[in-house]
């Protein structure tokens, strides 16, 4: 077993462990604990991105997810300041057991499918094929303003709409039907 495989397993287990802690009731009951577990998961997924030579995306993962999104989550959790009695204990109902079972079936089928389909696939040798700047800011930036210019500009409109929408939805209603 190579060192790279060991590092991958460590990061994958931490990422999945963080994800499980978000969802599983004993840890995820308090939304703040769930947010912190999500943070752990995001960090290790960023490490996985580095292993995939996607350096810019890994940095953005930390900045956007672990930075902005997580601050937003923690901010809202503290703003709402949910009391213990408002946080109803997550009870195991038959439908939830069914949901977890369906999730396990989905995981098994998808995992088996990808293992069978990707058998023996080898990655492109980046250095030999001339992808020297793969995943770097130059390559990704050039793709964003050439091939993906229209989606990039649409994204900026989407963010503008999201900002206006968020302010409109969350603002305190003054007058009129409340």
């Amino acid at each position: 077993m190579t060192a790279e495989l060991l590092i991958f397993y460590f990061m994958a287990i931490m990422a999945v462990g963080g994800a499980v802690c978000v969802v599983l009731p004993p840890f995820g009951r308090n939304p703040l604990h769930a947010a912190l577990a999500l943070l752990v998961s995001f960090f290790f997924v960023a490490g996985i991105f580095v292993m995939l030579s996607a350096h810019l995306v890994a940095v953005l993962q930390i900045l956007v997810y672990a930075g902005a999104v997580m601050v937003l989550f923690v901010f809202v959790v503290m703003l709402l300041n949910l009391k213990k009695d408002e946080l109803k204990g997550a009870r195991w109902t038959p439908w939830k057991v069914f949901g977890v079972g369906a999730g396990l079936v989905m995981f098994t089928k998808l995992a088996l499918a990808v293992v069978v389909v990707t058998e023996g696939e080898t990655p492109v040798n980046l250095a030999a094929e001339g992808f020297t700047g793969y995943g770097g800011i130059h390559d990704v930036g050039a793709a964003l303003v050439t091939t993906y210019l229209l989606p990039f500009e649409l994204t900026s409109i989407l963010l503008l709409v999201a900002i206006i929408g968020a302010v409109l939805v969350a603002r305190r209603q003054t007058g009129g039907a409340s």
Binding site: V57, L60, V69, F73, G135, F152, A162
Partner: peptide, 17 residues
């Protein structure tokens, strides 16, 4: 990588709303 960048922007907008 650029596509993933756009997915992240959409995710951030989704979280805000």
């Amino acid at each position: 990588n650029a596509a993933v960048f756009i997915v992240m922007a959409v995710a951030a907008a989704e979280v805000a709303v």
